[in-house]
Design a protein around this nucleic acid. Sequence first.
RNA 1: CAAGCAGGCCGCCUUAUCGCCAACGAAUUUAUUCGGUGGAGGAAAUUCCGGACACCAAAGGGCGGCAUAGUGGGUAACACCCACCGGUCUCGUUUCGGUUUUCCGAGGCGGGAUCAGGACUAGUGCAACAGAAAGGAUGUACAGGUAAUGCUGUAGUGAAAUCAGGUAAACUCUAUGCGGUGCAAUGCCAUGUAAACCGGUGUUUGCAAGCGGCCCGCUUGCUACCGGAGGGUAGGCAGCUAAAGGUUUUUGGCAACAAAAACCGGAGAUAAAUGAUAAGGGGAAUCCCGGUUAGCCGGGAGGAACAGAAUCCGGAUUACAGGCCUGCUUUUUUA
Length: 126
Amino acid sequence: MDESFGKDEKLKSKKLIDILFQEGKSVKKYPLKLIYLPITNPEITNFKTGVSVPKKLVKTAVGRNRIKRLMREAFRKNKYLVTSNFPKPYALMFIYISRDEISLEELKKVMIKVMEKFNEAENKQR
RNA sequence: CAAGCAGGCCGCCUUAUCGCCAACGAAUUUAUUCGGUGGAGGAAAUUCCGGACACCAAAGGGCGGCAUAGUGGGUAACACCCACCGGUCUCGUUUCGGUUUUCCGAGGCGGGAUCAGGACUAGUGCAACAGAAAGGAUGUACAGGUAAUGCUGUAGUGAAAUCAGGUAAACUCUAUGCGGUGCAAUGCCAUGUAAACCGGUGUUUGCAAGCGGCCCGCUUGCUACCGGAGGGUAGGCAGCUAAAGGUUUUUGGCAACAAAAACCGGAGAUAAAUGAUAAGGGGAAUCCCGGUUAGCCGGGAGGAACAGAAUCCGGAUUACAGGCCUGCUUUUUUA
């Protein structure tokens, strides 16, 4: 199973991120929030995923780094849940909305639930 | 051996698996695969000083403004570092005097801590209590003196009474230094469809903008003419890491440091890499059990601080579990 998470799959375009925050929909499961938007640009063929931890909630750079790394790890292990289910690519942004630290195990569980919610919402619409 | 003080160093390790970033080398299906290699800190933090570098005019002149403040040295430079001098505090020791048990006062020598440590014979301001009077000063008593007068001395208040008084982390003065903005600097590529952009030529006046707050001065634009520039995405590349680098030895120097030689040469991301999991090792505080008069000994549980590079250096400041080393002081035990 492909568990890599390389450059190509990361959300890096500033423009795309701006559009995502303006027009994207979201699902929430504490302490995670997922903002998503279908990518209309035909050049881009795969999912683009980013993670974010607000400076307001986690004060130190070490703390934010730690949580972002755990989020990437949790996504990497479970990304098949979303990437294989849709014909069109999406831009995804996971945002951590708690002040407290979290273990990888717990984060994985929440990540899976958020992804399930996302699947439901998008499949219903189609 | 223990405690305290001062200074310095380190600040989890090993293996496996799954991943991330970088340059390199192969292979091919030419954008992918494979391979081994390298990949956070002593503070990377605060952004408080000082530089390098870049652009703004060859960064220019004046006023204003800011910073620094014993002397000498080090350095690219500094508010940093070193040495010395001085003041203040403190400890030890010693001498002298009073008293003589303690104790008190003065001085010498030695150690430690600390100090924005230039100038109040330029001007201005400020000063509790006491005192007649505290800054263009001058009243009482006694004594002296004069043509005359606080003119002179003493007493009295006070830290200080015409003494070159005190005070500059008071204005100020003096000396020295400082232009501004910062790698989101800056350069290149790509983009542009039109009152825009780029290049060139010409340029009188006026206006506007920029060059630190003002003035000077300088530059640019507005105008005219000529030429250039059409897929999509909206970014990409350089700057970008070799550093006033480090280690060791020798020489010079009290030292900071400098010179020479040999060796090592070390992250470069950009919604931002350096991570996750498992096993083993290591283990402080604390807790539990057993033994012991106690110190303590044995076993088990427990599990590691502050903190993340963002152009690069030198410092300062602040945060920090635990461990190690060196020196000094003190106490106890043993020999």
